[in-house]
Structures are given as C-alpha cells and as structure tokens.
Amino acid sequence: MSTAPIYADENWNLPSRGMVAMISLLIGESAIFTIFVVAYIFYIGHSVTGPTPAILQVPILNTICLLSSSITIILAERAIEHGQMRRFAFFWAFTMALGIKFLVGTGLEWRDLIYNHGLTISTNLFGTTFYSLVGLHATHVVIGLIMLSIVLIFTLTGHVKQQHAERIKVLALYWHFVDAVWVVVFTVVYIVGR
C-alpha cells in the first residue's frame, strides 16, 4: 500500500485564463497586422498611376487622442481596483470619447482623400494598401468601442462592481493593443511611407 504523503503544494496559483486568452488573441492579431504592414511596406512606391502617399496629412491630434486614451484607461483600471466606481465611470467614458474622436478624425481624413484627392480602395496600390491597413485598425477601434460602451452602460446601471476588475483589465489589454498597433501603423503609413 502506498505510504507516500499527500502532495499538497500550498501555492498552486495559475495565471488567469482571461488574461492568457486575451494575450493569445493579441498574438494572433499581431500576426494579421504584421501581414498587412508587410504588404503596405512592400507596395510603397509600386503604384502605377494615381495619387501617392505625399497627399497624406499627418494626423497628429488623432494620434495624441488615441495614445492618451491608453492613459485614461489605466486610470480607470486603477479606479475599479479600488472600488471607486464613479471615478471608473468617468475615466472609462473619457477613454471612449478619445476613441470616438479618433474615429471621427479618421472618417474626416478618408472623406478628404476620397472627395478631394480621388483616392479610393480601387484607385491604385497605394489606395488598396492604405485603406486596408488603416481600415483594419479602425475596425479594431470600432470593436473596442462597442465593448467599452457595453461596459459603460452596465457601469451606469450599477451592474459593474469591484469584483469585475479582472475582466475589465482583460478588456483594457485589448485597448492597449489597439493603441500600440496604431503606433506601428502611424510610423509605417505616415512617416516611413510618405
């Protein structure tokens, strides 16, 4: 008969599954963005006809908005950790406002490109790669905003509590990723590619 003692490791702590899953998802997302970025870089200067990247205006304000939304969401994360729900709601809404500002800015930029410069996705390779890459990022911003707004609604109706901090952090990680990707997209499209 076995006389081996029961093996009870007191500290059996594994990483949170939500965080692990979100990190996995973001690794996959990075691969998607990598492919689009590579395509963008590869096709710089390959357009046969039509507008060139020189027509782009650097969206400084937009970039500042989006990047600072990372800071406000960190403040929101801290707030919910300490159970300060009003503070959390405020910063969360602020984050969303910055995200919406970014989207509106992108929309205006596209309108300018389409109507004033005649650049659409089918105009030339620059159009194809530009709208695909920036559009892919904008899609992620939109998805992020939808999730943020759901959280905001539930916060305002009082359903989000301190014990949800873990899930909020997972969502915030996604938002940080969207911001980080913008740094790459911005560098490639507006600095390297121009």
């Binding site: 492919i35 395509a39 695909s132």
Partner: peptide, 25 residues
Amino acid sequence: TLVTITPLTAAQVMLLIDRYLGGHF
C-alpha cells in the same frame, strides 16, 4: 496556430478586397 492561421486569414481578406472592392494586392 495563433501565428499561422492568422496570416492566411489576412491574405484571404486581401484576396477578397481584390475580388470584391477592386483592390490591387
């Protein structure tokens, strides 16, 4: 899988952009 299925999806999205939206990838 995380880093291999996703490039295929990305490339297929590009292909669909070419085929549906008149892109030039």
